[in-house]
């Protein structure tokens, strides 16, 4: 995993862009590891990871080493080694353009 690559959920429509790659560990969505390309049919979303992802939101782990930007929303939710990622607080800058 490296910054700039796109990953997809194997079980829902979620797609994310890697902003910070973080360390080791399995990143999952809807309970299944993220994949670069979906093969075959989608599996089912694990009800324990079914809070959904929101378009344009950033998700991060407690340590702040992993950061994913949702570029397509889905019904699954993101996790690192089974621990749910949380929404990163937006610290909005005034528009300068």
């Amino acid at each position: 995993m490296k910054p700039g690559i796109k990953l997809k959920s194997a079980v829902c429509d979620t797609e994310v862009l890697v902003i910070k790659a973080g360390g080791a560990g399995v990143v999952s969505c809807g309970g299944a590891p993220l994949v670069e390309a979906r093969t075959g049919g989608k599996g089912a979303v694990d009800p324990a990871f079914a809070d959904g992802t929101k378009m344009g939101k950033r998700y991060t782990d407690a340590a702040g080493t992993l950061e994913l930007l949702c570029i397509k929303p889905g019904t699954g939710s993101l996790a690192l080694d089974g621990v749910a990622l949380h929404l990163k607080d937006a610290k909005p800058l005034p528009s300068s353009d």
Binding site: M55, G56, K57, L69, A90, P92, L93, S95, S96
Partner: peptide, 23 residues
């Protein structure tokens, strides 16, 4: 592309504008 994408992601929150906003 990496320069411009970094700039936008680093300074703008997606969908931050209310529907009536116009620049």
């Amino acid at each position: 592309h990496s320069n411009l994408v970094s700039y936008i992601f680093g300074t703008v929150e997606f969908g931050a504008a209310e529907p009536a906003e116009a620049a």
